[in-house]
């Protein structure tokens, strides 16, 4: 069996005169959570549509779960669950009916309990599924009346009914409130623990930071970078101190801090908020503390953080290694 669940090489796709994909290369390992990030119009949905077997590339190769996309007769062969960007439902069905409709035949009802124990068991029992995503109370209501968040959860249930190995989720957490987003992320993590490979697209980078093993960034139809998340964060491990001061300080005082050899950069975010990039945590913190003490500056809070994916993303997009 191929190590990769998805193996895409040099994918091109045009719509009229829009060259949407200009050589996308992407690899998703079996069993991982892959975060697919990029700005609006970067080509995420176009790529995912091709992965799902719903659309054909102009050129390039795309192998999903061992099947070359160009040779399949039907998306059903890929053993995938695809939750599109704006999932559409039969509004006149109830949630339960819509799941019943998609449930694959002839497979025995395995328990979600078993799945939670990490035995790799599938869960296709409709009631268990519905309560798993928090829709048990509305199981017999028509889907047409569901809110976007409810639809997103139902969509997640729907694509699991035939027990796929790979889940392709196009912006599953966008348009949800923070709580809804957290919920979806938790569900993704649980699904991954049950042994599913998952690729999901988003432009909410903190979501990626929270759950992904690998991150791929796409811009203007090209992959800019694809790396394990840990490696991505480690490589630019520059520590940054966030300072909140009790009162405003003058420019001369600030300039003094800037001249310190251990300090790389000082960003004044607001009058009392400073973001200080230092060479290393130890010497940096010593410099900052002695500076504070010398000028008797009142300190409200001090926090250390590492450069986050968002900043990294902006770096990469703006003239990184494209």
């Amino acid at each position: 069996m191929n190590e990769y669940m998805i193996d895409i090489k040099n994918l091109h796709k045009t719509f009229g005169d829009v060259h949407a994909l200009q050589g996308v290369t992407l690899q998703v390992k079996r069993g991982e959570i892959y975060g697919f990030i990029g700005k609006n119009g970067a080509g995420k949905s176009t790529t995912m549509n091709i992965m799902a077997g719903l659309s054909r590339p102009d050129s390039g190769s795309c192998i999903v779960n061992g099947h070359a996309i160009n040779t399949i007769k039907h998306p059903g062969q890929l053993s995938i669950g695809y939750l599109p960007e704006a999932p559409a439902f039969f509004g006149w069905m109830t949630a339960r009916e819509s799941l019943k409709y998609l449930k694959s035949n002839g497979k025995n009802h395995k328990s979600v309990k078993a799945a939670e124990k990490g035995s790799g068991q599938e869960m296709t029992d409709i009631d268990e599924m519905l309560s798993w995503v928090g829709l048990a109370d509305v199981a017999d209501r028509r889907v047409g009346g569901f809110s976007r968040g409810m639809k997103q959860r139902l969509g997640l249930c729907q694509i699991l009914m035939h027990e796929p190995e790979l889940l392709i989720l196009d912006e599953p957490s966008s348009a949800l409130d923070p709580e809804g987003r957290s919920d979806i992320l938790r569900l993704i993590l649980e699904l991954n623990q049950m042994g599913k490979t998952i690729i999901f697209s988003t432009h909410i980078l903190s979501d990626v930071e929270r759950i992904c093993h690998t991150v791929g960034m796409i811009a203007d139809g090209r992959m800019i970078v694809e790396k394990p998340l840990a490696e991505m964060l480690r490589q630019d491990i520059t520590p940054v101190f966030e300072l909140e001061l009790g009162s405003a300080i003058d420019a001369a005082t600030l300039a003094e801090l800037q001249r310190d050899a251990n300090v790389q950069k000082v960003d004044q975010i607001s009058e009392t908020l400073l973001s200080i990039t230092v060479n290393d945590e130890y010497s940096g913190s010593r410099s900052i503390i002695s500076w504070l003490a010398f000028h008797t500056i009142q300190l409200r809070s001090l926090k250390l953080r590492h450069i986050n994916l968002e900043e990294l993303f902006i770096q990469e997009v703006n003239g990184g290694r494209s």
Binding site: G81, Y82, P84, A86, F89, Y101, L102, S104
Partner: peptide, 15 residues
């Protein structure tokens, strides 16, 4: 038009 077939298709429903 509504793409209501997308999820069923990927779930193995035959044309």
């Amino acid at each position: 038009k509504d793409n209501t077939l997308v999820i069923p298709l990927c779930s193995g429903k035959r044309f």
